[in-house]
């Protein structure tokens, strides 16, 4: 019951208007950038590739004039989890082959274990920084439009790109609302003596202790969704043939950015799958 404030340290979702070149790119290009990031990350499973990818994110953050330390702030609440995971990795992988760096009693720390831990941390930091960067250079409205434009080509094959982007926009808008609901429900139940941190190994008891948290959370979210539907229908929302208040023009040099992202994606995949196999 220590963590009643869930999102105090999260840097994801905060728009920072520095007016840089990166900010002025069209949302489609920004989404293409994050897609490239995840594809390259998927192709690179070792420390070298992940570090290079992290440096690329750092460069993008500097180009966008966003403080990289701000992007990494979200790592703080995850620290206890990561530390427990590292300690467990150190203990359980102490028997692996290779030359031990340090031996304490039955425990020995190997280079491979340290590299695995380094990989865990760098991956986490890279993902956090990349998502944080996307949201700090893309305003909320742009995110919804960007998703719609990004999936628009699929519309030719019958993919409902507008409906899809509306759903994503609702989901993103609901995240802080649901978090707020969750906080107030947890506090309300705790003040009535509810104990969600109940220890013990009986899972049924645990499940039952989660009921007073889950049921109100989902019911209240559904109620809010119904309200939103009513409000939108009252304003005659139909979803078809909508025009936009904002239009996005490609800025000078944006074509080169897209070309550069494509080349980076190709290079990153080739590097990860063929050249980085022998590197740590």
């Amino acid at each position: 019951m220590k963590d009643l404030q869930f999102f105090a340290n999260v840097s994801i979702g905060q728009y920072i208007d520095s007016g840089s070149f990166v900010h002025r790119l069209t949302p489609v290009t920004k989404f293409f950038g994050i897609l490239v990031f995840f594809i390259v990350m998927f192709a690179n499973t070792n420390v070298t590739g992940t570090t290079l990818l992290g440096l690329w994110v750092l460069a993008a953050a500097l180009a966008a004039r966003v403080n990289p330390l701000f992007l990494l702030r979200g790592i703080k609440p995850a620290m206890p989890f990561l530390l427990i995971l590292s300690v467990l990795t150190l203990i359980f992988q102490s028997g692996t082959t290779g030359v031990a760096l340090v031996s304490i009693g039955p425990l020995s720390i190997h280079l491979s274990t340290l590299l695995a831990l380094l990989l865990l941390f760098s991956r986490f930091a890279a993902v956090l920084a990349a998502i944080g960067l996307l949201t700090s250079v893309t305003a909320e409205q742009e995110i919804a439009h960007g998703i719609e434009d990004f999936f628009a080509p699929l519309g030719r094959f019958g993919f409902p790109s507008h409906e899809f982007s509306l759903m994503i926009a609702v989901a993103l808008r609901f995240v802080p609302i649901v978090t707020g609901e969750l906080e107030s429900i947890v506090k309300a139940q705790a003040s009535r003596g509810g104990d969600f941190g109940a220890s013990g190994i009986n899972p049924i008891r645990k499940a039952r202790s989660y009921l007073p948290l889950f049921v109100p959370l989902i019911i209240r979210t559904l109620e809010r969704a119904e309200l939103l539907v009513e409000a939108m229908e009252a304003r005659c929302y139909t979803g078809d043939e909508r025009t936009r208040y904002t239009t996005y023009e490609m800025v000078a040099g944006e074509g080169f950015v897209r070309l550069g992202l494509t080349l980076f994606m190709a290079g990153g995949v080739v590097f990860g799958l063929y050249f980085a196999k022998t590197l740590p």
């Binding site: 869930f6 509306l166 759903m167 994503i168 926009a169 609702v170 989901a171 993103l172 808008r173 609901f174 995240v175 609302i177 649901v178 978090t179 969750l182 959370l217 989902i218 979210t221 559904l222 809010r224 969704a225 119904e226 939103l228 539907v229 939108m232």
Partner: peptide
Amino acid sequence: VIAGALGAVAIV
């Protein structure tokens, strides 16, 4: 809208 809202619950 309900899909989006429940998606937000899954994310949270």
